[in-house]
Amino acid sequence: MTMARQVRMTVNGAACEGLAEPRTTLADFLRGELELTGTHVGCEHGVCGVCTVLLDGRAIRSCLMLAVQADGADVTTVEGLAEPDGKLHPIQEAFVEEHGLQCGYCTPGFLMAICELLESNPSPSDEEIKDVLGGQICRCTGYQSILRSVHSAAAKLGGGRSATGA
């Protein structure tokens, strides 16, 4: 069946459903069908990392996955980080304070990758951070301030708060 089918997933803690053709990428489904446009698209071939989201807690490229494959999955996007009242997530706060962004287009992908990193490794070394962020391209910052942001976020989360807010 090449026709659209109903796809259900939990996104940012809420049950969501929408129509997806088999060929619809998860990125396009999130952005188009679920209107969660905070996840951006940069290359559609898996190199730039702009479209990174969390799938069952793991950072993945949403351009390299079909929406139908995420049926039943738990997805977290950048929209799931801040509190509904606008209070920023500590990683977001760190990015603002350390100037970890300029144009901000790649930022949601970075934030999601960092979420997974800090969840599994609350105080990563420079090398451990680079191992993860090597998969995220930023054309503006030169990465210096992003590295600082991750360390700052790790310190903010030091109280034992979960990086994904879970």
């Binding site: 952005r31 969660l36 446009t37 905070g38 996840t39 951006h40 698209v41 996007t77 950048v78 929209e79 980080l81 801040a82 606008g86 920023l88 977001q92 990015f95 603002v96 304070e97 100037h99 962004l101 144009c103 901000g104 287009y105 930022t107 949601p108 934030l111």
Partner: peptide, 17 residues
Amino acid sequence: KRVEDPSLVTGRTEFID
């Protein structure tokens, strides 16, 4: 701190796509 940032880090800034 940049006034642009809260909207950008939350994915709320509207880009053309």
